[in-house]
């Protein structure tokens, strides 16, 4: 019997360990949500009672409102552009072979691997020379350069399942190359395109270093948070955080919904 108990204990330990890890990852998010409804000025134990004051306060804070608006604009712009560029890059990679293709793909794939601190500084230095500094358009452009990597990956993955004969079949049935692109390739990629839209919006919505460097006086919401955090303790942060969390989690979950994340192969056809 002793030989049976040991593996069971080991399994229990494994599950407890995993549960502990999930608590570690989830705890910070829960803390923000819980304290955003706390009447106390300083977030601590014991809880000061339920209150919507801080949520109301952020509605009246013009800077926060502007930051939200900026983030939505930047997020939308990034989502559209990144999905367009990511699709183009993924399709070019899928469809053609040419000299320098590895470099081309790398140029799109690598930006997320560069620390945003350095990227932000470099973008600020370069764009200020081009006179593009301090504008939301500049933030959109830079966020797109980073987010298109994720878009390309998502769409390229989808194209792996695109039957090699489908496009030639479309030409064969009277579709020009442009027509085939829009009537066959794009519809096939639709789930990945939608996922890419949400994911790049989330990436943009979460990014603060580049936005901070390049945006100048135009703050996005994470930049506003960064600036709030560097000042006095401000109970509004929890309320802002709750809204930001809700938005970004919704974006990421929606993105996952459309790609249908699966680990490994399934034996059952569901």
């Amino acid at each position: 019997m002793a030989t049976r108990i040991l593996p069971r204990l080991s399994r229990l330990a494994q599950h407890l360990f995993l549960a502990g890890l999930f608590v570690f990852i989830a705890a910070p998010m829960l803390v923000i949500v819980v304290f955003s409804f706390d009447a106390n000025r300083f977030p601590t134990i014991p809880w000061g009672g339920f209150s919507l004051d801080w949520h109301r306060a952020i509605l009246e804070d013009a800077m926060v409102r502007d930051a939200f608006l900026n983030s939505i604009l930047v997020g939308l712009g990034t989502a559209v552009l990144s999905t367009l560029l990511g699709f183009a890059a993924a399709y070019v990679d899928y469809r053609w072979r040419f000299f320098g293709k590895r470099a081309f793909v790398l140029l799109v794939a690598i930006p997320p691997a560069v620390p945003v601190t350095i990227l932000g500084m470099a973008m600020l230095a370069f764009l200020s020379r081009l006179g593009l500094f301090g504008r939301l358009e500049a933030v959109i452009a830079c966020h797109t350069a980073v987010a298109s990597s994720f878009s390309m990956a998502l769409i390229r993955l989808r194209l792996n399942d695109f039957g090699r004969d489908l496009e030639p079949a479309a030409w064969n049935l009277g579709a020009s190359h442009a027509a085939a692109l829009f009537t066959v390739v794009v519809p096939f990629c639709r789930p990945a395109l939608i996922a890419s839209f949400f994911l790049s919006a989330a990436v943009s919505f979460d990014e603060f270093m580049i936005a901070w460097f390049v945006g100048g006086v135009h703050e996005t919401i994470p930049v506003r948070i960064l600036n709030l955090l560097q000042g006095q303790v401000n109970p509004k942060i929890n309320a802002i955080g709750t809204v930001v969390l809700a938005v970004s989690i919704a974006l990421v979950v929606l993105a996952q919904w459309f790609v249908g994340v699966r680990v490994g192969k399934r034996t059952d056809p569901t």
Binding site: A169, N172, A175, F188
Partner: peptide
């Protein structure tokens, strides 16, 4: 003359039906 102007339809081994239609 490009493929799409030839009117030489083909039945493919893989059938190449469009799964989204």
């Amino acid at each position: 003359i490009p493929a799409f102007q030839r009117d030489t339809p083909m039945v493919w081994q893989s059938l190449a039906l469009f799964p989204f239609l």
